[in-house]
Design a protein around this nucleic acid. Structure first.
Lengths: 162, 162
DNA sequence: TCGTTATAGTTACATATGAAACCATTTGCA
DNA sequence: TGCAAATGGTTTCATATGTAACTATAACGA
C-alpha cells in the first residue's frame, strides 16, 4: 500500500492537487467504449427487432456466410466470441432454422455448420444494412482521415485478432 | 495451428454470387468493438479483483473525483450511463463506504454525492493505473498518429457525449 | 390551492453474459 | 492396447444489464 496523505487533512471540501482526477471524456479507453457502443447499437437497432436477431447471432451468421462448414470453435475464433456465447447463439440459430448443424464425419465431437436457405435470406437483408451504417459512419471523415484510421486501428488492434 | 478451411469457390450449392458476405475483420464497427473490449478489460483487470470494483463503479468514482456534490442524474450524464446503472453502482459504493450520500437541502429528491476518505484512497491508486494503461496503448502510435486519432475520434463521437 | 405533469431515484423482472463444471470423444504415449 | 490428458461443445450458476413500473418530491397551470 502506497503512503497516503500524511501531511495535512484536506481543506474539507475540494480535491487536493495530488488527487489528480481522471478526465473521463478525454480518456481514450472511455471514448472508445462510448463510440463502439453507440455504433454497434445503431446497427443492431436495424435488425434486432425486425429479425429477432442478437448481435452475437448476427456475427455468427456473418462468418458462416463467408466460410462453409466451420465448427463452433472455428466460429468462436473468427468472431472473437467465447465458446459459450457461440454455443448459445448457435442454439438459437439452429432452433430458428437459420443454421443447419450436423456432425463431422471423422470427429464426432465437432459440428459442421452452414447457413440454411432461411439464414441466407436474412443475411442478404442484414449485410447491406450493416454496410450502409458503416458508410454513414465513415462519411464523417474525409479520405485522408479514413486512411489514417485504418492504419491506426491496425497498430492498436490486438495481434491475434486480425 | 491446424490449417483452416478455405472460403472455397461457391460450389453452386448455395445460390448466387450476390450474397456478398461481410468481412467481419475489416468491418469498422466490429473492429471498434474488439478494440474497446480488449482495452477496457485490460484496465479493469488491474483493479477489478484488487479493489472489488466494477467498471461502472469506477466511472462513477472518477466523475465524483472531479466534481463534488453531484446528483445521481448528473453522474449519469457525465458517465454516459443510464440512471439505473448509476443507482446500482452508487448502492454498492455507499454500502462499501466509498461514497457519502446525503439529500439535497432544497430538493429532497436529489442526492448529494461525494467520495469519502476511503473512496479517495482507492481513487488515488486506480487513477494512475488507468493512466498508465492509456499511455501503454498510445505508445503503439507515433506522435502524428496520436494527433490524427484525437481528431478522428472528435469527428466520430456522438455530439452529446463530449 | 388543487390537481396534473415532470423529475430523481429505486425496485422488479426478464434476459444476457462469463466462469467453471460437466459430458463425450479423440489424441498421445507408456 | 489401455488410460491419462486434451478437445469440442453444452449446462449450470452467479452476476450484470436494460426496460418498465413504481415511490416520493417538486413544478406548473387553471
Amino acid at each position: 500500500m502506497p503512503a497516503k496523505r500524511q501531511p495535512a487533512p484536506p481543506p474539507a471540501e475540494h480535491p487536493l492537487p495530488e488527487h489528480a482526477p481522471l478526465e473521463l471524456e478525454r480518456f481514450l479507453p472511455y471514448r472508445l467504449s462510448i463510440l463502439s457502443n453507440t455504433v454497434s447499437q445503431a446497427i443492431a437497432d436495424d435488425y434486432q427487432r425486425r429479425f429477432d436477431l442478437g448481435v452475437t447471432e448476427w456475427r455468427v451468421m456473418a462468418v458462416l456466410a463467408r466460410f462453409d462448414g466451420l465448427s463452433a470453435r472455428e466460429v468462436a475464433e473468427r468472431t472473437a466470441m467465447d465458446k459459450v456465447a457461440v454455443s448459445r447463439a448457435l442454439a438459437r440459430l439452429v432452433e430458428a432454422g437459420r443454421v443447419d448443424r450436423s456432425t463431422h464425419d471423422d470427429d464426432k465431437r465437432r459440428s459442421v455448420l452452414n447457413l440454411s436457405e432461411a439464414g441466407w435470406a436474412i443475411h442478404d437483408q442484414v449485410a447491406p444494412m450493416a454496410r450502409a451504417r458503416e458508410r454513414e459512419l465513415l462519411a464523417k471523415l474525409d479520405a485522408e482521415e479514413q486512411s489514417w484510421l485504418e492504419r491506426i486501428l491496425d497498430k492498436l488492434m490486438p495481434p491475434e485478432r486480425h
